[in-house]
Every structure is written in structure tokens, then in C-alpha cells.
Simulated scan of single mutants.
Amino acid sequence: MNGYTSRGLAASVDRGGRPTMRALTVRPGVRASLRLDQVAEPGPEEGSLLVETLAVGLCGTDVEVIDDGYGEPPPGEDVLILGHENLGRVLEAPDETGFSVGDLVVGIVRRPDPEPCPACAAGEWDMCRTGRYSEHGIKGLHGFARERWRAEPDAVVRLDSSLGDLGVLLEPTTIVAKAWEQVERIGHRSFWSPQTVAVTGAGPVGLLAALLGAQRGLDVHVFDRVTRGPKPDLVRALGATYHHDSLPASFLRADVLIECTGAGQVVADVMTHRAPDAIVCLTGVSGVGSRVPLDLGAVNRQLVLGNDVVFGSVNANRRHYDQAAQALAAADDEWLRRLITRTVPWDRYHEAFERRADDVKVVLRIRETGR
């Protein structure tokens, strides 16, 4: 049973006599397998830091793991603990770790290839070349939707305590921190003076991409289909422009385009509607099998003659967590708080996965932060 009870939450020890705790589990590939169950407490072999979970953010990847068979349990197990967006508080920290009891922390999601490829060996596990990396709550490692977890210090990031429960936004912010870093690295291949950025999608990642664009002093435009709810106001509160029409219909030629939907037609739009020397960053993961009419010859011609760049970006390494923490610290707390449209106690976890029209970011509350 790998430390898992067969059903129910009454057990305080597993069949091997080990103490247990609650966790949100799923069997990848098995429909309707999401449940709040009892699992074994983390052992010291998992890391010298012991952390209690305060909150877990939910995103489309979690839904894919639950509904679409995406995800992979740890080797030798058939159950995966869910949750990669996370916030916790240190319960145990040996002196040599550099952490203290009570520190507010976030666990880093991706861990390197066990036989490090050159990128992983250099700390660039987000650029792993072998695909043998692991990811908490997604691929080969249990996630953070459990009462307690352990990790080594190099897999944990300390947050300023003033961030409080908003620290649960750190992991999604790392995604766009990396995207912006890569955009700027590419931009400096030549003369670099961007003025306008277009962001497609006003979900959490799109809104955080817009936040980082506004922090850079750019003219930010965000495109989404909705006309009501919090998204238009959140965009305008950044001093950005909200569009509910399509990117081509706006006649906007952007220097930087950050695509956050994964929708095939939107991807095609951002690849064909930009300024010369433009940079297109794709962060949305598309479904397989969708077909969109696209003149590849015209796309190639525009890319070559315009010195344009289209690239993909996923995940983040440690420096992106540091960059994200700086971005959140510089942001307006009230604006960040408005991103979290629902906070659901985890004993009502099914409600958290109900799609509601006004949802932006939904968070499972595991324990109060004290703020």
C-alpha cells in the first residue's frame, strides 16, 4: 500500500504502524479517483526541513492530472499526492540549514535529473535535456496538498513574512518571471527598446505576466474573451488596456507577445500579428489534435524578414523564484489579493474544482497563516 490506507480518514497509523496525516490524492489515469485520504507522515529520508502546509493553489495542470490521465506517481506507487503551487511554514530546521522554525516558505516544484544532464547540473533544471526531471504533484514526486512535507534546504525558498498568505502566488509568478527573463535575454541580441506588450489570456499566469510588464514600464495590453467579472478591472488597475476582441481585430502590433492560453487560434494570431524584431513567448500548453488554418510559408517569411523570434517557456529554476518574490514584494497587496477569487477549506475540496465564471485563482486552505 506504500503507506496509503485503502479508504477513509479515521486511521492514525498505516498498516505498517507508521503515523499518518491527511493528503489530497489521485490515481493518474483513473477517473473520479480524487480524494482526501490518509498517507504516511514524511520520513527524515525526504529531507532535513519539516514544513506544515498552509495553502495550495490550483491550476489547469491539476485538472489535467485529475481528469485527463496526466501526471505520474512516484516510482513503485500508484497514487500521487496533488498540489504544486504551495505555501508552508517551517516546523523543524537543523541549525546548518539556514532556516528557522516559523519561516514562511515555498517548495520548488521541479527537481533535477538524478543523473544530471548539463543543464540540471548547472542548476537550470527548468531546461532539462533528458526529460528525467521530477515535479512535485505532477511527475514522480508527491505534491504539497498534505498536512506536512519534507525537503532539503536547496529545494525550499524563504519568503518575507510580510507577504503572508499571498505567498501562494509565488510559484505561478515564477513561470512569468522566467518568461520575461528569457524575452529580455533574446531582446538584447540587438537594439532593444520595447514599447508595447500583448498578453493573451487573463487567467492567473496572464495577469501576472501583465503585472511584470507593467513593472517594466511597458504599454501593456491583455486579451481575453470575458467581458464581465474581475479580469477587466484587474487589468485596468495595472494601468493596462483590456481587450475582449481578438488580437488581429485590435490592429495592435506588439514588440513582445506572451501567449498564456494554449488555444490554437490564439497561438496562430500571436505568431502572425507583431512588430518587426518582435519576440513571441508561448507559455500556454495546447491540446493535441486541434487544427487551425495557417499559411506556414507566410509565417516563415514574416519571421525571417522581420528578424522575429518565437520560443516556448515552461517551469522555473531557483533564480526565477527569487525574481518572482521580488515582483510580488513590489506589487500592490490589494491587487494581488484580488487575484485570489476563492479560498476553499480543503475538507470541501470538491468545491474548489467547480468551475465558476468569476474564478481567477482558487486556493485550498490547509491551515491558517496567522495573518
Rank of each mutant, 00 (worst) to 15 (best):
A202M: 08
P204S: 14
G239A: 04
L211Q: 01
L207G: 12
P232K: 09
P194R: 08
G239F: 00
A198Y: 05
L238E: 04
G206M: 00
L211T: 01
D233F: 05
A209T: 12
V222R: 09
P204G: 11
R228V: 14
A237T: 09
L218K: 06
V235Q: 08
G229I: 05
L238V: 03
A209M: 05
G217F: 01
L207V: 08
G239Q: 08
V220H: 00
P204Q: 12
V222T: 11
T200S: 14
P230N: 08
L208G: 14
L218T: 09
L212V: 11
R216T: 03
R225F: 04
L211E: 01
Q215R: 03
T196W: 00
A198I: 05
F223P: 01
S193V: 07
T241M: 09
D219I: 00
G203F: 01
P204L: 09
A202W: 04
A210E: 11
D224Y: 04
V199F: 10
A198C: 09
D233G: 10
D224F: 02
L208R: 15
H221Y: 06
L208F: 09
G206A: 00
W192L: 15
G201W: 09
P232G: 13
G217T: 08
L208I: 07
L234K: 13
D233E: 06
K231T: 05
K231C: 02
R225A: 11
T241H: 12
V197G: 14
D233R: 07
V199Y: 11
A214M: 03
P194C: 06
H221D: 12
V226D: 01
D224L: 05
V199T: 12
G203D: 02
A237W: 05
G201P: 14
G213Y: 01
A240S: 07
Q215W: 00
L211A: 01
